[in-house]
Write a protein that binds this DNA or RNA. Structure first.
Lengths: 232, 232
DNA sequence: TCAAAAGTGTTAATAGTACACCCATGA
DNA sequence: TCATGGGTGTACTATTAACACTTTTGA
């Protein structure tokens, strides 16, 4: 950036500074439902209401690092997929003060989220189709993050960040259905997965959801990257 | 956003504040080339070097408004397509100070950009394939903005913001080719355009580029929107 | 033995790509 | 009259969508 209205080395000194926060819309997946994580707001107004996980950027960290730190602090999870969605910069978006917020979409394997961490920070998962009432521009944030997620899964397999290492094709299909909000054809879906060599069928069988049992698959990130793909 | 570490109404008071800027990667189109606008940096380091048009967000405006204001101030153009691309938040990205910059992609009809405004702010258009040396993270910004533009034109006709109200199909095709960086088939291109009813063929003829003359088309925004489309 | 989820191929429809010639005009 | 860019349609290929039955097994 550049400022043409001044010409000396202290050109930045008169400019207004702002509080900068990150808000993370955290997605998880359970059984066949896409979930979003909120914590309870600790301060007035709307104390106790569900709110995305957020916090202020600190001096010694980048904005991305701030988002990662806050997520890690509050969920205990280290292996988090994080991607910037949009910056919310309206003047009165936060009634407490002028805060510019950078919104992230986070994808985590819900099983890694311990109950103790959830309780400690009063976090709660909500079904994407049964969201609680949200305040300020928080609904917008969730909507934008979901838009991002829907768009992203059509280019890349990031949705796998929502699943454990081994998964059945039925689970994977339910996951895509829950994100896209529509049913998919089982045979077409499996055909497409089988065309991608980095989906590896293992010898493991999951008997938890059927008597017959379903083959467990895993995703080979290295092969995926070596075939010229990025971003996972 | 929410801060769990404090519990009173002054919970924001201890937090660090940041300079927030907007940087706009401004695209234009001329003859058959996609162009990017830079101004000369007014301060050290790298004084005089090309840099995206940027400036600080002020207290009484949203971040989006800041981007719009800066563009309008420096180009004189009011009718600007602007869309957020990404926020650059690395700690040392600007050697002058910690500045968090929200990057925008701007599309303007180059003909509306008056020479006097260009001179006043020492702005210069560069061919996308012959960019000058850029400093800090400015190359990244241009790349991200171009990625955004390439992606966006596959969903929506925003590229029309780079053309005047009336245009020939050859110009439109050259525009898409310059953005996508590859040649397109003339017949397939025209077939697709003609399938979209909001591209209106007028009785006007442009004789500037051929003896025979080419029909001028225009884009019917209202019809486009009424057919369930958004974002233009 | 039967309920419940796993697994499996073919056909039709659609979208996308490749390709070559005539037209109108001003110089 | 000819050089230049404008304009047009068809056949092929690839991708996507629709669709129904058999298998396995624990209860």
């Amino acid at each position: 950036m550049d400022n043409t209205t001044s010409n000396n080395l202290h050109y930045y000194s008169d400019e207004k500074k702002f509080l900068v926060a990150t808000d993370c819309v955290i997605f998880g997946f359970e059984v066949d439902k896409l979930k979003v994580l909120f914590q309870r707001r600790a301060i007035e107004p709307n104390i106790g209401c569900p709110t995305p996980l957020g916090g202020f950027v600190k001096e010694d960290e980048s904005v991305d690092e701030a988002a990662y730190r806050i997520l890690n602090e509050r969920t205990g999870i280290k292996d988090i997929y994080l991607s910037q969605v949009e910056t919310f910069g309206a003047i009165n978006r936060d009634p407490g003060a002028r805060v510019i917020s950078v919104v992230y979409c986070a994808l985590i394997d819900k099983l890694k989220h311990s109950v103790s961490m959830m309780n400690k920070f009063q976090c709660q998962w909500y079904d994407i189709n049964q969201l609680p009432e949200l305040y300020f521009d928080h609904s917008d944030m969730v909507e934008k993050a979901l838009d991002y997620l829907r768009d992203a899964i059509s280019h890349s397999p990031i949705a796998l960040n929502l699943l454990p290492k081994y998964f059945t094709l039925t689970k994977l299909q339910k996951l895509y259905e829950s994100i896209q909000g529509r049913e998919l054809d089982k045979r077409n879906f499996r055909k497409r997965i089988n065309e991608m060599p980095y989906f590896i069928k293992t010898d493991l069988v999951d008997k938890s959801s059927s008597k017959r049992g379903a083959c467990l698959y895993t995703f080979d990130k290295k092969m995926y990257r070596s075939l010229g793909n990025f971003h996972i």
